[in-house]
């Protein structure tokens, strides 16, 4: 894939989010370039999940703007559904559709949104399933799968829409330890193929290995960011030093 690292995919300007009196995001400004893998870390309650969920407006910002591919998606007049098709999202608890078979989980959105015919979507789904080694699960229901399998399905369900960016909200936090590896491996594969990714995680190994930028959030702000070597090798923010000393 020919990746132009200078093209800005998502631009966030002074993003704020309050739940009642509680200011969860207190003004975030940053940009995500095409092909970048941005890993967001931070203590719980730092607002990292809220920030990620604001990028596709699952959380409606109280103030500030998000520009996706040049379009201001925080403008109420923007048809957010259209832009969400280009922003895949993976959740901590997978959120597969339990009443649909695996194949239908993957083909549902592309077919309903008329991106593909039923047959095209089926082909693509089988291709993706085979790619992650779950080709034999097409006719299974989510309840018959392990956590790691569910999360890999959730990832390819998003991929079936051909997104320009993938948002990961603690994708391995709900998994048994022995299943974390298979999900991280798939994410690493995506990163190497040039997929733009924003990942909220506690997996520092992943951040070091494939992150092009690591962002530390605390108290609803970006406290420090940089490339992994610099970020982990020479942290400057006191709170970050403390955080890293606790988890590394």
């Amino acid at each position: 894939m020919n990746v132009n690292h200078e093209e800005i995919l998502i631009e966030v300007r002074d993003l704020q989010k309050a739940f009642g009196d509680n200011l969860v995001l207190s003004g975030i400004t940053t940009e995500i370039k095409r092909g970048e893998v941005v890993v967001i870390i931070g203590p719980s309650g730092s607002g990292k999940s809220t920030f990620l969920r604001s990028l596709n407006l699952l959380e409606l910002p109280t103030k500030g703007t998000v520009l996706f591919e040049g379009v201001n998606i925080t403008d109420p007049k923007t048809d957010i559904d259209l832009h969400r098709q280009k922003m895949g999202m993976v959740f901590q608890h997978f959120n597969l559709f339990p009443h649909k078979m695996i194949l239908e989980n993957i083909t549902l959105a592309p077919v309903v949104l008329k991106k593909m015919t039923k047959e095209e979507a089926r082909q693509k789904a089988l291709e993706l399933l085979n790619r992650v080694g779950l080709g034999d699960k097409a006719d299974a229901y989510p309840s018959q799968l392990s956590g790691g399998q569910k999360q890999r399905i959730a990832i390819i369900r998003s991929l079936a829409m051909d997104p320009d960016v993938m948002l990961f909200d603690e994708p391995t936090s709900a998994l048994d330890p022995e299943m974390v590896g298979e999900v991280l491996e798939l994410m690493k594969q995506l990163a190497r193929e040039g997929m733009t990714m924003v990942v909220v995680t506690h997996e520092m190994g992943f951040a070091k290995e494939v992150g092009s930028r690591v962002v530390f959030m605390d108290e609803g702000q970006i406290k420090e960011q940089g490339n992994p070597e610099e970020f982990f090798g020479n942290p400057k923010d006191e709170r970050l030093k403390e955080f890293l000393s606790k988890i590394l």
């Binding site: 832009h83 959740f91 597969l96 959105a109 998003s158």
Partner: peptide, 30 residues
């Protein structure tokens, strides 16, 4: 039905009514 189901549907680009009709209501009905 857990909020995550709605979020999954909406994040794929489905509208509120598509999500309701295809994802939430069938599970709720059951």
């Amino acid at each position: 039905i857990p909020a995550g189901q709605t979020e999954a549907g909406r994040s794929l680009g489905l509208s509120y009514s598509q999500t309701m009709w295809l994802i939430i209501v069938p599970q709720a009905f059951k």
